[in-house]
């Protein structure tokens, strides 16, 4: 059982410390496992510090998302193939991403949050951020994709011909 008043201190990769409620950290598989591994008394206030490989700025965003989603049901439901759609992001999440997605280093922030969600094992946040990135790409041409994702074409002509041949069955 998770008690709302229980708190856990997280130390970030850049040395900052943040103390948050266990009600938030329960959504993170990584932090929950770390707490379990420490085998500390659940009533300890605050709990021993858990080191996370996420920088302070990104962790603040993660905590903001967790605060909004603190009452979400757990475990996070597994999606079937049919349910893997990118156009069902809740309004609050869209506004949340929009807030920092307009910055100059917009994609860096998005990648940082995706990586943090992966490292901290927060399935809901990972799902939402992946959808956000997928939405940026959906419907774009190959050239536009390369520009958005900052990719360079590293295919040889032969490889490109091979790829075209492979995909011929589903094109046109």
């Amino acid at each position: 059982r998770i008690y709302p008043l229980m708190r856990v201190t997280l130390t970030t990769s850049d040395g900052a410390s943040v103390t948050v409620s266990r009600q938030l950290t329960k959504h993170s598989g990584f932090i929950e496992k770390a707490i379990t591994d420490m085998a500390v008394d659940d009533n300890a206030v605050p709990l021993s510090a858990v080191a996370v490989d996420v920088d302070d700025a990104t962790l603040k965003l993660v905590i903001e998302w967790l605060t909004e989603h603190r009452d979400d049901a757990l475990p996070y439901p597994e999606k079937t193939d049919e349910e893997r759609r990118a156009d069902d992001i809740p309004a609050w999440d869209q506004a949340f991403v929009q807030k920092w997605d307009t910055k100059e280093d917009q994609q860096q922030t998005l990648y940082a949050v995706i990586t943090a969600a992966d490292k901290l094992d927060i399935k809901g946040l990972l799902d939402m951020t992946c959808k956000t990135l997928a939405n940026k790409i959906n419907g774009k041409t190959v050239e536009e994709m390369r520009e958005i994702l900052q990719l360079e074409c590293d295919f040889t002509e032969e490889e490109l011909a091979e790829i075209r041949k492979e995909n011929a069955w589903c094109e046109n």
């Binding site: 959808k131 997928a134 790409i137 419907g139 390369r146 074409c153 790829i163 589903c170």
Partner: peptide
């Protein structure tokens, strides 16, 4: 994670994306 992002794209986008970059592919 790359796979997780790509699987959320629509089908034509996925196919097009494979032609964008060998490393991504």
């Amino acid at each position: 994670i790359i796979d997780c992002i790509i699987e959320k794209m629509d089908f034509p986008t996925r196919i097009a994306l494979r032609k964008s970059c060998l490393r991504l592919y």
